[in-house]
């Protein structure tokens, strides 16, 4: 089985998000980066599928040069090789543009499975996997909790809303978008980190894939949301703040 896992590098969760002077993106100097968390779960599922079925796990990642670090992390955890679609410019392409890049790069690989996280923690379009499936003509399922391979098909458990679930069977090849938390994530071993250095990373410049990175949706301005609700904030020493809060809950909200 050939299993592709598509991962994205995103600003780390505890990064301070400062909008740049043009209001177009963030001050990148402030940011540290990590693998998008749902993609980390997709990688884990891919590695476990390979352990069950044999074959190889290929990491697919579109991003600037710094994304190489996230690719190495995936290789250190056990992926076999990687494809890095690299762009030079500062870009935040929309889901269709990203999926077009991914589709063009992955087509020659003829994979059986493509796994990716259900959404990214930065732009959060939550669409790249579904769009990729449509572009490649693959079946897909989203928000997947369990993956049960069945020969040339797969049965998955999907999460619906309000605590409902559903099993769905699909023919291969297939794109699955993986929900966070479905398996426990592994750590890279020292041996894994060492081995990763010798694994193949094929770099494809985005410009060679014939997709205009700046097409599609335009974010005209990004900004901190303005508060519409008047929240009473208690600052100062924790003890004092706690005292003020309890007073309010008791005499104003009358809830304790």
């Amino acid at each position: 089985m050939k299993i592709i896992v598509s991962v994205k590098q995103v600003p780390a969760r505890d990064s301070s998000l400062r909008v740049d002077a043009q209001g177009k993106w963030l001050e990148e100097a402030d940011l540290t980066y990590e693998m998008n968390e749902p993609d980390a779960y997709a990688l884990e599922e891919a590695l476990q599928l390979k352990e069950k079925l044999g074959g190889e796990v290929v990491v697919l990642c579109a991003g600037p040069q710094r994304a190489a670090q996230t690719i190495r992390e995936a290789l250190a955890k056990g992926a076999d090789r990687a494809i890095h679609i690299e762009w030079e410019e500062r870009a935040a392409p929309d889901a269709l543009t990203t999926a077009q890049l991914l589709a063009n790069a992955v087509k020659p690989e003829s994979p059986d499975f493509i796994l990716t996280g259900l959404q990214s923690d930065d732009l959060g379009y939550g669409q790249t996997g579904v769009v990729l499936a449509e572009l490649l003509g693959f079946a897909h399922a989203t928000i997947v909790m369990e993956v049960e391979p069945q020969g040339d098909a797969v049965r998955v458990k999907r999460e619906l809303e309000d605590g409902w679930f559903q099993h769905v069977s699909l023919p291969l090849p297939v794109v699955l978008t993986i929900q966070s938390g479905i398996k426990k994530l592994r750590y890279a071993t020292l041996m894994g980190i060492k081995k990763a250095k010798t694994k193949e990373v094929k770099t494809i410049p985005a410009s060679q894939l014939g997709i205009d990175l700046n097409s599609g949706l335009v974010m005209e301005r990004i900004y901190l949301p303005t508060r519409s609700k008047k929240t009473q904030i208690f600052s100062g020493e924790p003890k004092q703040a706690a005292h003020q809060l309890v007073e309010k809950l008791k005499f104003e909200a009358r809830v304790i």
Binding site: F234, P238, V246
Partner: peptide, 26 residues
């Protein structure tokens, strides 16, 4: 904080124990 009526900006490991103490006092 957009959804909250009341908020404390601070380290929960300091704020929560202080809150417990205040509630018990009350």
């Amino acid at each position: 904080f957009e959804t909250a009526d009341y908020g404390i900006v601070g380290d929960l490991f300091e704020v929560v124990p202080a809150l417990v103490e205040e509630i018990q006092k009350t």
